[in-house]
Nucleic acid binder design. Structure first.
Lengths: 241, 241
DNA sequence: TCAAAAGTGTTATGAGTACACCCATGG
DNA sequence: CCATGGGTGTACTCATAACACTTTTGA
């Protein structure tokens, strides 16, 4: 009994399945946290809103497929992209059984705008205004929101949603929007400052006020080494869940 | 252009893949954290140690497949089982490309012993004595260990590794073993007691000492409602990562 | 009686929280 | 000069951490 023979015995009679990747793409427009959805222009299921997704090709890994798909829609690569969960219900895809590996991506919404491709009829939706979605995409988004809330309460990943230069008031608004809570300005800025993640720039954003708010950028070195560390930026984080 | 037609266009030409589930089964023997591995007795790759796994059937979800596979090896159902990560490298399985969804399970090692099936040549291995493993199973275990350490630092899930009745010294030893650290007994017991997760029984375990240690059991109601809450049982949890 | 493990209380430190006023500027 | 948003300091509270002795009992 050689390998090929046994492959027939053990592997060959198994069912092969379609395997897809779906991307939950988060962005922040300065006021609200939003998700990028596409509208299907082709059959099947034309007209349905859905997450951006696609099948895993025969020579690519799931991570590579997610990057490819994200790039196809946004033009962006090298952005924060994390595998979230594998959705395996046999009835989740109504056309043919498909396993889907959901990823979530955090992007700077402004970078996206420059490179938007209209081919997919993509639109940003606020989290509380998500339209009816294809298949189980609504539960994917719900899980994505929860997991991101969980993770961002412990780790400084929301910076990924901001441009390279941002102000402390912008950062505060982002956290307040995402956790739907008002956060004390003084405690917040102190906490963020003591993390050592920020570098103050000699430049002000005068858009939001007459006085202007200083721009900051990330200290990328400290950022990378602190991504795994617990940094409780959100107040009362331990009571959140 | 109707649905069937488009299914041919869009779905039909996609590659279908084998999709498997692998289970990282953790147990605690009173001294060490261990993982249950099986030895393949058939070709292909006979003699290799590996995680317990199997292909996802055409009518079952990934979660159901994981439960089925866990039950096949341990005889146990209703145990703690959580999806961990989907491993999708096209070269990870050397026989045929297979996507694998890894799960981790926490079981009471003593329950298992009663129902062990010798069919799979299963053995428990301490985490620092894992033999060479099939495919990418070593990295699955490594990720499993890390994720479990992370999660158990925040949530009281290690109770799943203990029998229904356990003593505080046993619990302490479990945490010390898992985090390879010595933990202050007084702080530990106080912290655990104040969680409200434990019910003290009027019975002592006299195995470990002459004096005997009181047995406790879980308050299942509080346990379930606190699984999502942050409970920092491990000291210096925020410096761990 | 003694060895071996179980059980328990106090103090100190530091992180988190609550809270209110001055600053800078453009209109 | 004033309205608007930006920026900062202090005191209190509570959770965590450090630390050592007494109790029980079988051999």
């Amino acid at each position: 009994m050689h390998g090929k023979m046994t492959k027939l015995n053990k592997y060959a009679r198994q069912t092969r399945l379609l395997v897809a990747v779906d991307c939950i793409i988060f962005g922040f427009d300065g006021t609200q946290l939003k998700i990028l959805l596409i509208k299907r222009v082709l059959q099947p299921l034309k007209g349905n809103w859905s997450l951006m997704g696609g099948f895993i090709g025969s020579a690519e890994s799931a991570d590579e497929a997610a990057e490819r798909i994200l790039k196809k829609l946004t033009g962006l690569s090298g952005v924060y992209l994390e595998q979230m969960h594998c959705f395996g219900d046999p009835k989740r895809d109504t056309i043919e059984r498909t396993i889907s590996v959901a990823y979530f991506a955090l992007i700077d919404i402004h970078k996206y705008k420059e490179q938007i491709s209209h081919e997919y009829h993509a639109e940003w939706f606020a989290l509380n205004e998500i339209p009816k979605l294809l298949f189980d995409h609504a539960s994917m988004i719900e899980m994505g929101r929860k997991k991101l809330q969980y993770k961002a309460a412990l780790h400084p990943i929301l910076f990924e949603l901001l441009p390279a230069k941002f102000t402390l008031p912008q950062l505060l608004i982002l956290y307040e929007a995402f956790y739907d809570a008002s956060i004390d300005k003084r405690n917040f800025t102190r906490k963020v400052q003591t993390t050592g993640l920020l570098v103050k720039l000699n430049e002000k954003d005068k858009d939001g006020s007459k006085k202007g708010a200083f721009y900051y950028k990330l200290n990328r070195v400290n950022y990378r080494s602190n991504l795994q560390a617990f940094l409780y930026i959100v107040p009362n984080a331990h009571k959140l869940f």
